[in-house]
Simulated assay, not measured.
Amino acid sequence: MGNALPLSADRPQQKTEEKPYALEEACTVWEEVLIDKKEESTSADMPLGMTIHNIEITLGRGGQLAKATGAVAKLIAKEGKSATLKLPSGEVHLISKNCSVTVGQVGNAGVNQKSLGRAESKCWLGKCPIVRVLMNPVDHPYGGGKGRAPIGRKKPATPWGYPALGRRSRKRNKYSDNLILRRRSK
Rank of each mutant, 00 (worst) to 15 (best):
G2M: 12
G2P: 05
L5Q: 01
L5H: 00
R11T: 14
Q13E: 07
Q13W: 11
K15T: 12
E17S: 06
E25Q: 15
E25P: 01
T28E: 12
T28L: 08
L34N: 11
K38H: 15
T42D: 11
T42A: 07
D45W: 14
L48A: 11
M50S: 15
H53K: 05
N54H: 11
N54K: 10
I55M: 01
T58M: 05
T58P: 00
L59D: 04
L59N: 06
L59P: 02
G60F: 01
R61S: 05
Q64P: 00
L65G: 01
A66W: 01
A66K: 02
K67H: 07
A71P: 00
V72N: 09
A73K: 02
K74Q: 12
I76N: 00
A77W: 02
A77S: 12
K78A: 11
K78E: 08
G80M: 06
K81G: 06
K81D: 12
K86N: 12
K86G: 04
P88N: 03
S89C: 12
S89P: 07
S89T: 15
E91G: 04
E91M: 15
E91A: 15
E91Q: 14
E91S: 12
V92P: 01
H93P: 01
H93Q: 15
S96G: 15
C99N: 13
S100R: 13
V101R: 01
V101W: 01
G110L: 13
V111S: 10
Q113R: 09
Q113G: 14
K114V: 15
S115G: 08
S121V: 05
W124I: 10
G126P: 00
K127I: 12
C128A: 08
C128W: 06
V131Q: 09
R132L: 08
R132V: 09
R132H: 04
V133H: 03
V133L: 03
L134I: 00
M135Y: 00
P137E: 04
P137V: 10
H140A: 08
H140W: 03
P141I: 05
G143N: 07
K146Q: 10
I151A: 10
I151R: 09
K155E: 13
P159A: 09
W160E: 10
W160Q: 14
G161V: 04
Y162L: 12
Y162C: 05
A164H: 07
G166T: 07
R167Y: 13
R168H: 03
R168N: 13
S169W: 02
K171L: 11
R172C: 10
R172Q: 13
N173S: 08
Y175R: 15
S176R: 04
S176K: 04
N178E: 08
N178I: 04
L179S: 06
L179I: 04
L181M: 15
R183Q: 12
S185D: 08
K186W: 07
K186R: 14
K186Y: 12
